[in-house]
Simulated assay, not measured.
Amino acid sequence: MQSQHAITRFSFPQLLKMFFYPTVVISLFGCGENQPQANIDTSAYVHTVASEPLQLQHSYRVMRKFSGRVTSKQSASLSFEVSGRIAAIFVDEGESVTKGQILARLDTELLTIEQQQLQAQVLQLKAEEELVDANLTRSDALIENGYASQQTVDELTAQKKVLRANQQQLQANLAAKKYQINHATIFAPFAGTINKRLINLGEVINPQIAAFELQQHSNFELKVGVPQHLIAKIKQQQAFNLEVNQQTITVTSLAVNSALNERSRTVQLRFPLPDGLKAYNNQLAFFSFEQRYQQGGFWIPLTALTDGIRGTWNVYTLAPESNDTYKLLSHSVEIIHSEQNRAFIRGDLAQDQLLLSAGMQRLVPGQLVKTNL
């Protein structure tokens, strides 16, 4: 029989909880009592902002850029003047040609045969006319001797006139055949480049079908459409700035069309480009025109603008306070003109007044700030 006062047995984990954990906790509390407290600065932080003084302008300039096309003054669509089968093609697209160079030729064999037939008919009529002349000579002699009547002479004279009329008609037909043979060949009317070849060897072609598109090497011009109300101011300029191939070119000559474009409602300007300029037909180019407006205001960066109420725009200015700090004040402004990274505004602002130029999203009116100036 076991004793009523039996000794209670504890496992090792239970003993660890009873003696080790309380010792560690007491040690931690003892170590923390002598640690110094951190000094926390509870004063308000003042932002340093980017600012710049406002500069009053009595006018502003707007650089307007109008796009246009570079075109060649000489550009032609070439075709045959007669119908026929294409016998030879001497050039292809992209090739340079000189003035008078042969580009293509038609088969003229049938035209040559018809020309020879007409020449034979002319010879026949001349022979008949010679016979009529001989008969007239004999008839005149017979009339003198009383062996022929005047009617015979009149008939021979009329026959001679008919033969001469037929000869004239044949000569005209011969001239037409000669013209067709001579114009069965296309010659280059000026030196240039073949932009398009629209025919193939062996095709039967008529004069309504274009064969080549030829463009002159030089003599380029820029055609630009501008609003009608700017024409008078543009004409007052002595020089004009053009941009071709990302290269600025200054020219002094200008031609203005007298008609208004029905679609764009603009007036076309034509600027001759310098000789030797590397350009392509229908290439995009630009004409820059600087226009001045008499309007007071300030140029500010776009980063200085923030949305206001009811669709307005606001800017912040810096009003001096104590200890080199400034107070932000909000001003409602009107945007007169804007460009890529700046805007021309007007509002209740003054010369040399400090403007908050960036960081609007982190600040509010009435906040104290420091300036970087």
Results as ranks from 00 to 15, higher is better:
Ala120Asp: 01
Val25Met: 09
Leu318Tyr: 06
Thr108Trp: 03
Gln268Thr: 12
Ser330Arg: 13
Thr48His: 11
His337Arg: 08
Phe10Tyr: 13
Gln101Leu: 06
Val62Asp: 15
Ile335Ala: 05
Leu123Arg: 09
Gly100Arg: 05
Val369Asn: 11
Leu318Trp: 06
Lys278Ser: 13
Thr48Met: 12
Ser11Met: 02
Ile26Pro: 03
Ile205Ala: 10
Ala211Thr: 07
Ile300Met: 07
Glu93Trp: 00
Gln268Asp: 10
Lys178Ile: 11
Leu356Met: 09
Glu203Cys: 12
Arg346Trp: 05
Pro227Ile: 09
Gly347Asp: 05
Ile209Thr: 14
His5Gln: 12
Ile249Met: 04
Lys126Asp: 02
Leu136Thr: 06
Asn39Thr: 15
Glu93Ile: 03
Val333Asp: 10
Thr98Lys: 06
Leu28Met: 15
Ala259Thr: 13
Lys161Trp: 12
Asn34Tyr: 14
Val267Asp: 04
Ala343Gln: 07
Leu349Asn: 13
Gln74Lys: 14
Val70Met: 01
Ala104Asp: 02
Gly32His: 10
Val122Met: 07
Gly146Trp: 03
Tyr147Ile: 09
Val25Cys: 07
Ala6Gly: 03
His337Asn: 05
Asp154Cys: 04
Asn241Ile: 02
Glu144Asn: 10
Lys235His: 00
Gln117Trp: 05
Phe286Glu: 04
Asn314Asp: 14
Ile89Lys: 00
Gln246Met: 08
Val162Leu: 12
Ala104Asn: 04
Ser83Lys: 08
Ala44Pro: 15
Gln367Ser: 07
Gln340Val: 12
Arg342Tyr: 09
Tyr147His: 12
Glu243Lys: 09
Ser51Trp: 04
Thr193Ile: 15
Val244Thr: 06
His217Val: 13
Asn166Gln: 11
Ile309Thr: 09
Ala172Tyr: 11
Gly146Cys: 01
Phe10Leu: 05
Val70Gly: 04
Ala188Gly: 10
Gln291Trp: 01
Leu15Asn: 01
Thr193Asp: 14
Leu305Trp: 07
Tyr326Asp: 07
Leu174Arg: 08
His47Gln: 08
Gln119Pro: 03
Ile86Val: 13
Val226Gly: 05
Gly202Thr: 13
Gln167Val: 05
Ala350Cys: 08
Thr250Val: 12
Tyr326Cys: 11
Ala134Ser: 14
Val24Pro: 04
Ser332Cys: 10
Ile89Leu: 03
Thr325Ile: 10
Ser77Cys: 08
Ile249Trp: 00
Ile26Thr: 12
His337Ala: 12
Ile336Cys: 01
Ile209Gln: 15
Ser27Cys: 14
Thr23Val: 09
Glu262His: 09
Lys235Trp: 04
Gln2Trp: 09
Val369Met: 12
Ala38Gly: 09
Pro365Met: 11
Thr325Pro: 08
Phe187Ala: 04
Ser264Met: 06
Leu269His: 00
Lys177Cys: 12
Cys31Phe: 15
Ala191Ser: 15
Phe289Asn: 01
Glu93His: 01
Leu368Thr: 11
Phe286His: 11
Leu368Gln: 13
Ser258Asp: 11
Gln291Gly: 00
Phe80Cys: 02
Gln216Asp: 15
Arg69Phe: 14
His58Asp: 15
Ile335Gln: 02
Ala134Lys: 14
Gly311Arg: 04
Gln124Glu: 13
Gly30His: 11
Asp140Gln: 07
Ser218Ile: 03
Ser96Phe: 04
Lys177Gly: 13
Lys73Cys: 03
Arg362Pro: 05
Lys99Ile: 06
Leu56Lys: 14
Thr266Pro: 02
Ile86Asp: 04
Leu368Lys: 14
Phe271Cys: 02
Gln291Asp: 10
Ile234Tyr: 01
Gly30Arg: 11
Val46Gly: 10
